[in-house]
Design a protein around this nucleic acid. Sequence first.
DNA 1: TTCCATTGAATGGGTGATCCATTTAATAAT
DNA 2: ATTATTAAATGGATCACCCATTCAATGGAA
Lengths: 288, 288
Amino acid sequence: MNTKSSPRTPSRPRTASPNRRERASDQRATGAVAAPTFKPIHTRRTFEEICERIREQLALGILKPGDKLPPERDLAQQLGVSRNVLREALRSLEMAGVLRLQKGVKGGAFIQEGDTRRMNEVMRDMLSLGTISVRELSEARVHVLDLVVQLACANARRADLDALEANIERTELATREGRLLDRVECSREFYKLLAASTGNKVIAMIVDSVTEIHMRFVYAKVASSGVAMARLAEKRRQFLSALSERNVALASRLLRSHLESVQRMLEQDPGAMSLHVALADVQPGMRR
Amino acid sequence: MNTKSSPRTPSRPRTASPNRRERASDQRATGAVAAPTFKPIHTRRTFEEICERIREQLALGILKPGDKLPPERDLAQQLGVSRNVLREALRSLEMAGVLRLQKGVKGGAFIQEGDTRRMNEVMRDMLSLGTISVRELSEARVHVLDLVVQLACANARRADLDALEANIERTELATREGRLLDRVECSREFYKLLAASTGNKVIAMIVDSVTEIHMRFVYAKVASSGVAMARLAEKRRQFLSALSERNVALASRLLRSHLESVQRMLEQDPGAMSLHVALADVQPGMRR
DNA sequence: TTCCATTGAATGGGTGATCCATTTAATAAT
DNA sequence: ATTATTAAATGGATCACCCATTCAATGGAA
């Protein structure tokens, strides 16, 4: 009758677990005026707690990029959890780009520099899950790029302009040699450089994430149809020229009209625009 | 001498493991022509493979929100991996907002609707890790909100405006009753509603992510100093009025000037602006 | 019949022990 | 000195359990 329910001596102490529970249900008494504030539905699990503790140390500045966490076996013991559940937490943080795990003696879990590409993954997931649409993404991209042009005109430094110039040269070379897919890769890089030239990494991250997806569509289109944007390098040069002269209005107009023509190209054959084609797998040559 | 290196009868069969290994080390023979294409540094691990397979099914539309994966024990067997390593993968996908795990019979791993709050976490991590700065974040927020005003003027529907109106009323109530922190919560909601009124979820997601962090600073400031923005509701009403009349120039100007005054308030005491204060833990009342 | 308590199976949550694979430092052999 | 060998540390992965929760089925009481 009591085989599994009765008092049961706790074979392992289960350190700190009770406290955690309490903290979770503490959650905002808020003066108890507005009644319908229910606490979040799913109970706090160990691995979430671990992730949070580590993130907390990060936010507090106790842990910084380059630091190493204790070995799994030690850390698990310190936290009073099994190694397996600790690993679930470390995995999650690794996927989140916060940690890098390295094998061997002198290996361990190292705090990483933030990986800005993480936002790309968020966008991809949102698209895969149907939370956002391709249309919304394209629209957002156009608007954000317009903002980027303004900021780039204001903030681009010599080195940024030079990098863009070098990119255009690579584009010309790829065009002459008929390497269409490499040219798409150049485009991707062009927008990345443009975004970087705003001098604002938040903006750059946002632009990169939407551009990365957009370029998958372009890549798929070019790969399947063999068509390619005409006079690309020429248009880029005009744009760069406007940018160098800090001519916001002209640069903005040029880019917008280019984006529109790309959009028309993509929409010629709506079938090729399917999510699956673009997202199904990492395109060759596209580093993640 | 041979304790672990020699031919060694494999004491346990290690289902399917050898195949995976081979595939992992196969990794890009690359024809050996273009020398400088090094393969990515860290070897492919099982859980990554699993995550990728599941994401692939998502992108292909085979899995859709609401669908349930097989039970852990079954799926582990199907994939030829241990249950533990499968769980590492599921944990990662859960943290990524792709899955929700639910206990009990009729429980399982369900594909979720995309959780747009995930981008908040990316921003928080980037800030914690020092990859982006508070300055960049504030700056980006101002610019993006400017864009939001334009889009909202163009696209806001009646329901959006009504929701903003209701929000302002809550703000007024909180002001009258002196609930300053609730008023901050109202502000957060205000920007969320404003972002939603653009009709573009990508933009909305971006705005929410930067606003969420910004509001932590405001919250910390208000909580510690007791000061609060004067004539907040009044300013909100003016803004909403401009928005309703689709007066982009006015709405934009009003918002910008408000943002500047908030910024001045925050910068009065730079000490309170430390990351740690704002990020250290989830602020009470801020739902994640 | 209707309703409520009990039971039991399914399923995720978590543990501990054990082995493998990789990396590096220390050591020995040349 | 240089190079090969060994050993230890550490993450990667597996297996075999057990617990806690959930829910449907069952059965007795009203």
